[in-house]
Computed example of a mutant assay.
Amino acid sequence: MNEMDVLKNRWREAKGTRTFPDIAEAADLSPSTVEYAFSPKSTNPSIDTVVRISRELHVSLDETFGILSPSGRAETELARQDASHWKARYEAAVRDIEYLRTVILMLGVFFFVVVIWCVALDLRCADIGFFRGEWSFGAVFSIVCISITALLVVLVVVRVCRRHRQRKGENE
């Protein structure tokens, strides 16, 4: 289907119940010219005929043929760039949320493991336990060091997993 066929289909849709003589009178054309312009035999009507019939039927040639004014092209390009910018921001936010969820999950797991470790140590060594007895500098220092080390390990593992998923997504 060529461009003229598309235009003629749009004309037929816009014509509705109007007759060719009505359209011809309003467009200041002869009825035979209008009838011929609508017929499949007409492959190359004059631009004047096309413009007059399209104007009368309120069919936009710009929309039909995909013609944009220079300002329309610029606006379309800006809209396309704006849409791609916001899509990239959205995807980055989704990745960040996924990363934060993973970090929070890992921290929760780590906290749970530390609590279990402290309770187990406390039950075995009642003299120097974390919950019973005295809190010595060595016990508190070891808990802080283990916690910081575990947190760094978790963050490194999450970062490595995230980069791996990004590379895998780029390769697909």
Rank of each mutant, 00 (worst) to 15 (best):
Y90P: 00
L78D: 02
G133S: 01
S71W: 07
D96H: 15
D28T: 06
Y90T: 03
K41V: 02
T33L: 05
R167M: 06
K87Y: 08
M4A: 09
T43Q: 14
A88M: 09
V114F: 01
V140Q: 08
L155N: 05
V156W: 15
F20D: 09
D5T: 08
V157L: 13
V160R: 15
W135Q: 07
H85C: 03
D127Y: 10
V158P: 00
S69D: 03
A79Q: 09
I143F: 12
K168I: 06
A37L: 04
E98P: 02
V6G: 04
V153Y: 15
A24I: 00
S30Y: 10
V59L: 10
H164L: 12
L151V: 12
M106F: 11
E3C: 05
L121D: 11
S69R: 04
D62G: 14
A24L: 01
G138A: 11
T102R: 15
M4D: 02
M1I: 03
R132I: 05
A14V: 09
P21Y: 00
F131C: 02
A74C: 02
V59E: 05
E35S: 15
W11R: 07
R73W: 01
V51W: 06
W117Y: 09
A150W: 09
F20Y: 15
L152W: 14
L155F: 14
A93Y: 11
E35L: 11
M1R: 07
L105R: 14
S30R: 13
I47N: 11
T64M: 04
R124A: 12
M106V: 08
R12L: 10
S142M: 09
S32M: 04
G72N: 04
E98G: 13
R132K: 13
C161K: 12
I146E: 06
R165V: 03
L155T: 14
V140H: 05
C118M: 14
F111D: 03
M4I: 15
L151K: 01
L61P: 03
W11M: 02
A79M: 11
D82L: 13
R89Y: 05
A93W: 04
L123G: 05
L68W: 04
A79E: 08
E75C: 02
T19A: 04
D96E: 14
R89A: 10
I143Q: 05
A126E: 05
W11I: 00
G72V: 02
A27L: 00
C161G: 10
K41I: 06
R80A: 10
I67Q: 04
F141R: 10
V156N: 03
F130N: 06
N9I: 06
Y36F: 10
R10V: 01
I53A: 00
S84V: 07
W117R: 12
N9Y: 09
T17G: 06
S54K: 09
S46W: 07
F131Q: 01
I143A: 11
V59C: 10
I104C: 09
E25Q: 15
K41D: 07
A126N: 05
W135E: 05
V34K: 00
R163F: 06
S142R: 08
G138I: 04
I148S: 07
C125L: 08
I143L: 14
V109L: 14
I146Y: 03
V115L: 14
R95K: 12
